[in-house]
């Protein structure tokens, strides 16, 4: 009973945050709403006896990725008074995709209701870290390795993209800055002597 109540509270919170994420025009508000969605989801994971997934959800999505997003938004300092140029024709595509998602949800719900009920695994160690770790490194080793290589590729790609403009440019800027500063100082001294 308590679990059901908690589920509805956190599911409602997640949906409310998701709606606010889509409707806010200020990107920073959207980012904060997304953090709210992540936190609500992680609370649902806790009620589903998966504390490891919940902690990782908070640690990685809310604590690392969204901090980067917020950082970029703050760095760019986007003005919220400029009207956003929304792409109108995408509304139809979005509506179509949403309908497909809804249909899929109903199909999954229907399929689950139709299938014979399996005995609930009441073993308390299912969601525990030890079991997740041993499962990842025995039964699901190949997917883990593949995902690892994929992430490594993403990191290398990111480094290459960021380094495409030759890296000496930064030093040049620094040198120019230093030279300019020296010139300025010399000039100042000159002025003082005058």
């Amino acid at each position: 009973m308590v679990t059901t109540a908690l589920f509805f509270i956190f599911a409602g919170l997640a949906i409310a945050c998701a709606i606010s994420l889509v409707y806010h025009k200020n990107p920073l508000y959207s980012a904060i709403s997304l953090v709210g969605v992540f936190i609500a989801l992680s609370c649902i994971y806790v009620t589903l006896a998966a504390p490891f997934i919940a902690a990782v959800q908070i640690l990685i999505y809310a604590g690392a990725i969204m901090v980067l997003v917020v950082f970029v938004i703050m760095l760019l300092n986007l003005d919220d008074d400029k009207p956003l140029n929304r792409l109108r024709y995408l509304y139809a595509v979005g509506a179509g995709l949403g309908l497909i998602l809804l249909a899929q949800t109903f199909f999954v719900f229907y399929a689950v209701m139709r299938s014979p009920k399996q005995a609930v695994n009441t073993d308390e160690t299912v969601g525990k870290t030890l079991n997740i770790g041993s499962a990842m490194y025995t039964e699901y080793l190949l997917p883990v390795e593949i995902v690892g290589i994929l992430l490594l590729m993403a990191i290398i790609g990111g480094v290459i993209l960021a380094r495409r403009f030759e890296p000496t440019k930064l030093e040049l800027v620094v040198n120019n800055e230093l030279e300019r500063r020296n010139e300025q100082e010399i000039e100042d001294e000159y002025r003082i002597r005058l």
Binding site: I39, P51, A55, A62, A64, V67, K128, T129
Partner: peptide, 18 residues
């Protein structure tokens, strides 16, 4: 007494950046 205490502390403190 939760199973993932270390991750819990690290995760919550990382949210504190906001």
């Amino acid at each position: 007494q939760i199973d993932v205490g270390v991750l819990f502390v690290l995760g919550i403190t990382s949210v504190g950046v906001y």
